[in-house]
Amino acid sequence: MTFAGIIPPLCTPFHDDFSVDTGSLRRTIRFLLGAGVHGVFVLGSSGEGAFLPDAHRRAVVETAVDEVAGRVPVLVGCIDMTTLRVAEHVAAAEAAGADAVVVTAPYYTRTHVAEVERHFRLLHERTALPLFAYDIPVAVHTKLDCDMLLRLAADGVIAGLKDSSGDEAGFRHVLLGRHDRGLDGFVVFTGSELVTDAALAMGADGAVPGLANIDPHGYVAIFDHVRDGSVEAARKEQERLVRLFAITSVASQTRMGGSSAALGAFKAAMRMRGVIDNAVLAPPQVPLNGEELAGIQDKLVEAGLL
């Protein structure tokens, strides 16, 4: 499998009883593949992977692998608090037919860079799948060290990086270090919806933007424009998507957390576009109210998506 391009982190649709809506999940995958995405990533942050019990995770992975049917890579988030717990998720993803796994630093306990490095090395020993490091300090409270990442890449422990740190300078240091050390096989993705064009121009191999659940065509267009050297066209498309991303701040964070506001907006927009049947969030996240949903609908109309 080739890992490059636009790989959306799929939202996980639920029924009212919080069971996985596999029908809507299959429809989401068909919608994304029809837009020309280059892979799918399930059970990441947008997929609420950390909220889900093992049976739910299994249903998501098995449904995705079956629906994709080998057309593009299926990456699976294996996110948990400790190495041994993550190792079980990695084994389940491998057994279900995943093409790669995506792993954060351990969380809950405070970790040292030596412990984070050991975490990745032990997981690499336990799977034949490509292992991607996921840098998301806002969620796990640990920023992945640049030198550690490059060392793990040089040793063949990690195949790539999904950088959702928001540290653009650090992201550039990783790209520069990859070049300087000749790590051509080490794949680097941005997780940002807002600077995809800039990251690709810097040399990133692709992007994993949550907003692509709503407008995958826009992100595929950015990737194509940058690849073709059409910088201005990429910039204009990116600016349109930046405006669309404002849906994530429609809900008031005086009554809910940022995850509820952002993922609630993503799912509401997907439901309004007919991609999924229900905008239910995994508990304890809080649902959006009618006024907030109307605001999201207005922004979809402004973006030409409704």
Rank of each mutant, 00 (worst) to 15 (best):
S164R: 03
R71M: 07
D99A: 04
A69H: 09
T127N: 10
A105T: 05
D155I: 04
T111G: 11
E94G: 10
M148I: 03
F171G: 06
Y107I: 04
T109W: 14
G160A: 03
L150N: 04
L122G: 14
P130C: 03
Y134H: 02
Y108G: 06
H89V: 13
T104G: 04
T109S: 15
L175H: 05
R172W: 13
T127W: 09
V116P: 02
T104L: 09
L122Y: 15
R126A: 12
R110F: 12
V174D: 03
A92S: 10
S164P: 06
G156W: 03
G182I: 00
A95W: 05
P130D: 07
T142A: 13
F120C: 11
G97F: 06
V103R: 10
C78T: 11
D163H: 01
A69S: 10
V116S: 04
R126I: 09
A128V: 13
G160M: 03
F171E: 08
Y107A: 01
A114F: 13
T104H: 01
V72R: 03
V102R: 04
V102P: 00
T111Q: 12
A105R: 01
A100I: 06
R71G: 08
V74R: 04
L131F: 03
L175P: 02
A105C: 04
E115V: 09
I79Y: 02
F132G: 03
H173G: 14
Y134I: 00
G177P: 06
H141M: 11
E168T: 13
V74F: 05
E117V: 13
R118Q: 12
V113F: 10
R121W: 09
H89A: 14
A133N: 08
A87Q: 12
D145F: 06
V113N: 14
H119Q: 11
R71A: 13
E125A: 14
R178D: 08
S164A: 12
D66P: 10
E88H: 15
D99N: 10
L75I: 08
V174P: 06
T111A: 15
L149F: 04
A98K: 03
S165P: 00
T82G: 14
G70Q: 01
G156P: 08
K162E: 01
E117D: 12
V113W: 07
D99Y: 08
R85G: 10
T83F: 07
R110M: 12
G160T: 01
V65L: 08
A98F: 08
